[in-house]
Design a binder for these strands. Structure first.
Lengths: 104, 104
DNA sequence: CACTTATATAAGTTAATGCTTATATTACAT
DNA sequence: ATGTAATATAAGCATTAACTTATATAAGTG
């Protein structure tokens, strides 16, 4: 019965149009919050809050790099989440911050 | 861009715990609203409204039989909706109305 | 250290959601 | 036609969700 609530939480996380868009941008790799503010036409705190929801639902992970935070899709997804991601078209953003290739 | 909104609508329809439960009961075949009131512990209008959402999202269909309405899962589902249905455990209800075998 | 930049948190507003109770509709039965 | 049963609709309420603006935090730079 608790599996239902877990599914509900994950599905709620991906059922918002803005968050679906965020995910479609994430399909092309890591992005940081500043990349998304322009693209979604919402405020920086709004993006920050959306990403938090996706992270709490276990769909994305974050990597801190200086003042930036880079987000990316988790490798392992529930099959039904993966099916949703498959349905999304991959979109490109122009990166506001140079995505440094160095690790950590 | 409108595909996002369509996905959002369908995903919203399945992201509520009670509606996920309804769907898990539907996996075993047709059921009518009266079957579900006891099972979910919510009022008849509440069940009725939930079913309407699932129907508007194109996930279930209805068949009228006298004063009863029998609901069932649509045969063709979007792949990502099917993946969600696959994840749900099939549950059994005791039918309040004799599910007549006659058609229409 | 002071200044800037990226992100987070807080508080408030508005809209959407999901229930409730009360009442309306529809269909069948007597 | 009247009564009963299944479902639908309406209205109201409480909760949640998703923004906003303002402010705080944290990290890099001169």
């Amino acid at each position: 019965m608790d599996e239902i609530n877990d599914m509900s939480k994950k599905l709620k996380a991906v059922s918002d149009p803005n968050r679906l868009k965020l995910l479609s941008y994430l399909k092309n790799g890591e992005i940081c919050i500043c990349d998304l503010v322009d693209v979604l036409q919402i405020s920086q705190p709004a993006v920050s809050q959306q990403m938090k929801k996706l992270k709490d639902a276990g769909i994305i992970r974050e990597r801190k790099k200086g003042t930036w935070k880079h987000f990316s899709l988790n490798d392992a997804q529930e099959p039904y989440i993966q099916a949703i991601l498959n349905e999304l078209e991959a979109r490109t953003v122009s990166h506001c911050c140079s995505l440094s290739h160095s690790v950590n």
